[in-house]
Design a protein around this nucleic acid. Structure first.
Length: 423
RNA sequence: GGAGAAAUGGCAGAGUGGUCGAAUGCGGCAGUCUUGAAAACUGUUGAGGGUCACACCUCCGGGGGUUCGAAUCCCUCUUUCUCCGCCA
């Protein structure tokens, strides 16, 4: 959520920047400013009414004490009127505040200066590329065929138990998955991230805090009996640790890493793009989350990008980094870098990580603040990234490391797996 | 799941109708003292709205009610604790 102050002061610049998202926010911003002004004027009226009411109450108390019951009763009649007025003002104020809040919820984050304009993923800007795409033998298979051939992932069995998009990992497939989780967590903790385990469900307030609600509730599985949502990413529970928190400057930086399964309803496209592990309703992911001082957050973002690069380098997977254009940028993000691994057998890039700086957008909803040198509360910056999302990394490994008689295991993973090939 | 108790500032803990945004202690911050630190002493120390700055307003788990007036009384929800039951 954007800050009202920022909107008041930089209205034109914000409208201009939001155009990169192909959004004309002019009328929305005008609505916000109108409602804001109305809210403040109602608040002032209400405050004055309450002040008068408080004054009379004190007077009545004093009159009773000195035995002037008659005069006190006369004053009571006055307060009855004030009470009615304040009730009306309170209702109006609440309505206005709600309308203002709803309008603010509709405005996405302001893209960073470096974000290119653009309509869709076609316009994302490739900023880095590393690794060599292996030349595979004739008859190399996509990962879903490999999964079947070596009996390491069973998609049909998942359909039987739960439904499409809930695969069952078996034998060395399950072990490889677990190896990746441990490897990622080890890499992250070695880089200074504090490992935590968090709930896999969240309440409504948490959904609002990180921006999944109110707009993207269709993305999450919802359990009405308990009013809980299954998490679409560890970002939600981990970042919400800091909801309603006031930090000291010396607390920065705050860094966490967490492994969680992620649940996504996303009714999406069909066909090859969602085959196998390409898109699932449940998948595993290791996440990194940072809370930073505003002056340091872009430095931190670069650090996160370098960290993810390091992991992919060790896995020896060919990958590229994209700077997302305005049209592809997430609602809450100011700047996002996507990592994609090249899937040789599918001849396409697969997104395996998304690293973002949300600046104060989430912090504003979360009320995540810190005390500056003057002791004033300021909003902190939040960031997060995947390091990494498992299924597509797995797909990349299976496809790129396949040989005619088996699948090799990347060297760094062998100690975690306890085997060096799947055959 | 059943029975009872409780929820107050960073923490602990007073406060049972007006003078309470809230005693006191601890912690934090600043100062005095000290070569420096500790101790001691002094002062200061919740959040939000509003204002040029004051004034002023709101908040004592959430919501509603009684009253001229609520941290304090009533209803309700949530959470926590204790006991019993069940259980990985």
């Amino acid at each position: 959520m954007l800050q009202l102050n920022a909107i008041r002061e930089n209205k034109d610049a914000i409208i201009e920047a939001l155009k990169k998202r192909n959004l004309d926010a002019a009328s929305l911003i005008a609505t916000v400013l109108d409602l804001d002004e109305k809210r403040r004027s109602l608040q002032t009226n209400l405050d004055n009414t309450l002040a008068e009411s408080n004054r009379l109450s004190k007077e009545i108390g004093a009159l009773y004490k000195t035995g002037k019951a008659q005069e006190a009763n006369a004053l009571k009649e006055e307060t009855a009127n004030l009470k009615e007025v304040s009730k009306q003002l309170t209702d109006d104020l609440n309505d206005t505040a709600t309308a203002l809040q709803n309008a603010l919820y509709q405005i996405p984050n302001v893209p960073h200066d470096s974000v290119p304009a653009g309509k869709s993923e076609e316009d994302n800007e490739e900023v880095y590329k590393e690794g060599t795409v292996p030349v595979l033998f004739d008859g190399a298979l996509p990962h879903w065929e490999l999964a079947k051939k070596y009996d390491i992932i069973d998609f049909e069995l998942g359909v039987k138990i739960a439904g499409a998009g809930f695969p069952v990992y078996k034998g060395k497939g399950a072990r490889l998955q677990r190896a990746l989780i441990n490897y990622f967590l080890d890499k992250n903790t070695a880089a200074g991230y504090n490992e935590i385990q968090v709930p896999h469900v969240v309440n409504e307030a948490s959904g609002y805090g990180t921006g999944q609600l109110p707009d993207k509730e269709g993305q999450m599985y919802y359990m009405p009996a308990d009013d809980l949502y299954m998490i679409p990413t560890a970002e939600v529970p981990v970042t919400n640790i800091f909801r309603d928190v006031i930090l000291n400057e010396k607390d920065f930086p705050i860094t966490h890493t967490a492994y969680t399964p992620c649940f996504r309803r996303e009714a999406g496209s069909y066909g090859a793009h969602v085959r196998g592990l390409n898109r699932l309703h449940q998948f595993d992911k290791v996440e990194i989350v940072r809370v930073e001082h505003p002056d340091k957050s872009y430095e931190a973002l670069n650090g996160m990008v370098e960290h993810v690069k390091d992991i992919l380098r060790e896995l020896k997977l060919p990958y590229r980094i994209l700077r997302l254009c305005g049209g592809d940028l997430g609602f809450t993000s100011a700047l996002t870098f996507d990592f994609e691994v090249f899937s040789t057998a599918q001849d396409r890039w697969l997104e395996i990580s998304s690293v973002s700086n949300f600046e104060t957008f989430q912090a504003n909803r979360l009320k995540l603040r810190y005390k500056d040198e003057e002791g004033k509360s300021q909003l902190a910056h939040t960031l997060n990234g995947s390091s990494l999302a498992l299924p597509r990394v797995l797909a990349g490994i299976l496809e790129n490391y396949q040989t005619e008689d088996g699948i090799r295991i990347p060297e760094v993973l062998i100690p975690y797996c306890g085997f060096d090939r799947i055959d």
